[in-house]
Design a protein around this nucleic acid. Structure first.
Lengths: 148, 148
DNA sequence: ATTGTTGCAAAGTGTTTGCACAAAC
DNA sequence: GTTTGTGCAAACACTTTGCAACAAT
């Protein structure tokens, strides 16, 4: 039995399942976007997705990419993050890998980090305010090791 | 001695001082933007600024507003915040009133909040990562009391 | 055959830039 | 009079929408 060349993680499996459950057909562009997002450790912009897909000979139209990302966001499997760079970024939501971002003002690099005390503080605020908190996004800006 | 109808806060004074120090002349549009920002308790978008200025008969061109905001940001007296609404918002930086934002997914309302434990957690992360953190932005999304 | 999916081009929205005129010094 | 500030219109960048062709069921 041949070994698969790409290992689908839990996220890709769940995402395809949810798409199927929602009665969606299996389109090539969408499958490519889902597979690409699954490989990433951090958020990608729509243009980056377009370029990466083109590089791997599975180009998809820009409009399709945006539509697919919006759909995945509505399904709750992708989160759209705005890091103050004038463009949105998208990443797979993996329940076990919640994280936030460091954004370099120098080169635009985006680095993920996580921190339990921070999550606890956010959770505690959520209970305190007269507001039904559904999500949160934390961005630290500065200079990365290379740009400093 | 007549009482002033608008009280300039420390921020407006400092901002005008910084502008003077930087050798800037006192233009009407800029003074209007500075005065308006000084009155706000929370961040405004460029369009909101344009509308509010027009309402008070001190209209300013959109391009001027953007240029002024960029300049104030460079001077370090205004911060540009991106709350995931597809547009930037701007607010006065008041050293004694650091805060973050709750954004309502229903009506788009932006509500300020502050929290010491949260600030401590961010500060602690800043020391831990290999990254020169210069600022941070925290956004909690959800539904406000009215939309819930 | 039906209906969801895709890609292109056009439209939309927020922001920036070029340039001429007005205002501050 | 020189230099900065301002407003208009045009240009831009990212995102969304309209529509016809295509593919999955």
């Amino acid at each position: 039995m041949p070994k698969a060349t790409t290992q689908q993680s839990q996220w890709e499996v769940t995402t395809n399942q949810r798409l199927a459950d929602a009665g969606r057909r299996r389109g090539g562009a969408r499958a490519a976007v889902v597979a690409l997002l699954d490989e990433q450790s951090c958020a990608l912009s729509a243009y980056e997705i377009e370029d990466l897909l083109a590089e791997r000979e599975r180009a998809a139209g820009r409009a399709s990419i945006y539509r697919i990302l919006e759909e995945l966001e509505e399904l709750g499997v992708v989160s759209k993050v705005e890091l103050g760079q004038g463009q949105a970024r998208y990443e797979a939501i993996r329940p076990d890998h919640h994280h936030h971002h460091l954004v370099c003002d120098g080169c635009g690099a985006v680095i993920a980090f996580d921190d339990e005390p921070l999550e606890r503080a956010v959770h505690s605020i959520s209970k305190r305010v007269d507001f039904a908190v559904e999500g949160h996004e934390i961005v630290l800006r500065g200079l990365c090791a290379d740009c400093r």
